[in-house]
Design a protein around this nucleic acid. Sequence first.
RNA 1: GCGCCCGUAGCUCAGUUGGAUAGAGUACUGCCCUCCGAAGGCAGUGGUCACAGGUUCGAAUCCUGUCGGGCGCGCCA
Length: 586
Amino acid sequence: MKSHITDLIVQALDQLAAAAVIDSADLQTPLVERTRDPSHGDFASNVALVNSKAAKMRPRDLAAKLIEVLPSSELVAAVEIAGPGFINFRLADRAYASLIPEILRQGHDYGRSRIGAGRRVQVEFVSANPTGPLHVGHGRGAAYGAVVADLLEAVGYTVHREYYVNDAGRQMDILGTSVWLRYLELCGEALDFPSNGYKGDYVWDIAATLHREHGDAYRHAADEVFDGVPLDEPAGGDKEAHIDGLIGRAKALLGDNRYRFVFELGLNVILDDIRDDLGLFGVEYQEWYSERSLTESGKVNKVIDRLRESGHLYEQAGAWWFRSTEFGDEKDRVVVRENGQITYFASDIAYHLDKLERGFDRVIDIWGADHHGYVPRVKAALQALGADPSRLDVLLVQFAILYRGGQKAQMSTRSGEFITLRELRKEVGRDAARFFYVMRKCEQHMDFDLDLAKSQSSDNPVYYVQYAHARIHAVLRQAAERLVDVEPSDGAINLERLVETHELDLLKSLSRYPEVVEAAACNEEPHQLTHYLRELANDFHTYYNAHQFLVEDAALRDARIKLILATREVLRNGLNLLGVSAPEQM
RNA sequence: GCGCCCGUAGCUCAGUUGGAUAGAGUACUGCCCUCCGAAGGCAGUGGUCACAGGUUCGAAUCCUGUCGGGCGCGCCA
C-alpha cells in the first residue's frame, strides 16, 4: 500500500526532472507516511517540502506541480495539498477491502517479505557463563534476541542464532573447584567454603551426583587441599588469591584427567539446564559455539600473533597489551596476562574475527548494558586486524527490574539468590514473560510488573491480544453450533458490503501489518510489534461490540466472516513472531 | 572525575528516524450485556515533552551546557 504511493510520487518526480523543472541532482528521496489524523487522508508525503530548494519553488507550488503530473491510480480516491505543502492521499474504500483475499491467500506468510534478500546475519545472544542457571536478567536478552532474530528472518534474512559458551577460563575453574569442595563436604570433610566460590544450591546438586556415582574416588583430606593456600578474605587475606590457590591445589591433587572430569561434570549439567530452560522459553539456536574450541584450535594464538606481528601489541610488566587507544578506546587492554594465560578479551577477539570470516554479511551481538564499555575494544581489535568493524552491531539491553506487590523483587525468596528465568516462567508463564520482555525498546530501563503479567484481565496486554484471537474462534464455534454456514467465499465476493467505520478501521490496521514487521525488523525494535498487536486487538474488540457477525443476511455475514478470518491470521502471525501462543480458547 | 543509556499525563510507556492540534495503557469518574465470550466497548478528567540556550520554513526528536536516575571505567568474565 505504502510502496504503491511511493511509486506514484517517484514517477511524478521523474517527470518533473525530465522537464527540467527541478534539478535531479539535488533530489531528496520522498518520504511517505501514514497520517496520524484521519482528516489528512490515509497517506501523506513531505516530498514537496524536502525538495523545495532543489526546485527553487515554494513547497505548496511544487506540490501543485507534482499533483499535475501524478499518475492516476485505481486505489487512490483523492489527492490534495495541505498545511505547509504536504501532499495527502485518500484511498478508495475498495483499496482496503481488496486486501482480505490477499491475506487469506498468503496465510502465515502475510507480513513476510524479501527485503533482506537472503543476506546472512548472525545473531549472538544470551551467552551467559555456564556457571549457574539463567536468571531474570538473562531473560530479557533471551526474549529480545529471539524476537529480533525471528523478525529478521521474516523480512528475508538468513539468520544464524548462536550462543557463545564460555567453557574455558577462570570462572569455570572456580565452578569446578566449588563443585569439588562441596563434594568433599559430602564425603565428610570439614572445610571453610571459599567466599568467592559458587554457593548456589545447584552446586550441591552436582556435587551430590559426583558423590553418589563415584563415592570417595575424588576425595582428598581437607588439610591437604588447603595446604599452602593463601588466606581467604574473612580470615584477613585476599579472596582472589585464596580461590586461585584452591584451583591450583585441585589441579595438583586430582591430576589432569580427574580434574577435567569434575570440571566437565559441572559444565555439562549446567549447560544442559540452560539449554532446557531456553528451549522451554521458546528460544532455539543453530549453534552453541565453544570458547575452548577457539583456544584448542589455535585460533586465539594465531590472532595474538597477527596482532603482535603487525605492531599492535607491546609488552609491559610481563603482560602483553593491545594498543586499542590507537582506535579510539579509552585505554590499552591486556591480552596475555603476566602468568601467561590469555584473557577473555583475547578469545573474544578471535571469536569476533571468526564470525566475520565465516562470511556473515552482518553480525549482531546482544549484550547486557553493563558490558557497554567493552564495545570500543572489540571494534578496535577488528579494525587492527583489517576487518570492517561496521559489520558488527552491538545491541545493549538495559536491565529489567521486577516488581511484585509494588515492591522490587530481585531476590528469590527461596534461595536468597537472583530469581531464575525458570522461576519467572513458572510464575507468570512463558507467553506473558516473552511479551513483557519485548514490550519496551531495549535501551529503555524496564519495570516488569509480575502481578500484571499474571493477571487474567484486560489490564494485561498479553491476555488482551490473545483474547481477541480466542474470541474470533468463539464466533466460529458459535456459528457451527447454530449450523450457520461460515465457509468463506472466494476472492473479493461480497466485500463491498464492508462499509462500516469499524470495518474500515480494522482493514486499515490489517494493511499496516507488513510495514510494522519491516520497521520492527530493520530497527531491531520488537516493541513496535507488541504495540501494533494491542491496537489491532482494540480495533477488533471495538468492532465486535458494535456489530454482529453472524447476521441473517448471508452476503453480509460472508463479508464479515472473511474480515475476522483475516484478522485472526494477522493476530496469529504477529503473536507467532513474538514467540507467544495464539490460543483458540482461554 | 571520564564514558554510555535514560528523563514525555499521578504510574508504566509510545511518538513512523525533523513534520500538521503530543498519544496509548493504567488509575479515577460516568455510561453500555433479552445480543456471536463484559477476559469486552464508549465518554470524560489529566502535559512548562527535566531545565537553559542554539541550528531552520518547522524541534519531544539534532547540537552545546546544567540538573536528576541507571550502568561502566580490572593482568574478572
